[in-house]
Amino acid sequence: MSLDRADVAKIAHLARLAVDGDEADAVARDLSRILDLVAQMSVVNTGGVPPMAHPLDMPQRLRPDVVTEPDRRDDLQATAPATEAGLYLVPRVIE
């Protein structure tokens, strides 16, 4: 499996990672090598094997509907990059 610069650009955008033009070739090469490693999976026929999403065969435990969290906005915003009036600020979102 070989990825090219265009593939990298598409994946990088989905992942919201800027990949510079001069990095793109190296990244494409590394990713292609990793995918070659991963491609070894295809040697085994897995037809009919149930997928295993989780090591535990255990049901979800449920939490009682109780409010336990007090307002800690000041603590939680202490290291926030940009806030005003209790809001997190981001560049204007256009809808």
């Binding site: 509907d65 969290e69 800690r72 906005r73 939680l76 209790g86 997190y88």
Partner: peptide
């Protein structure tokens, strides 16, 4: 109409001051 959120113990009441009902789980710390 639960009292707390689906995955955290923060309250769900409408109209509170911004981010006063968002705990570390809601903020994805």
């Amino acid at each position: 109409a639960t009292r707390s959120k689906i995955f955290s113990g923060a309250p769900t009441a409408f109209g509170a001051a911004p981010n006063t009902q968002a705990c570390e789980i809601d903020l994805a710390l």
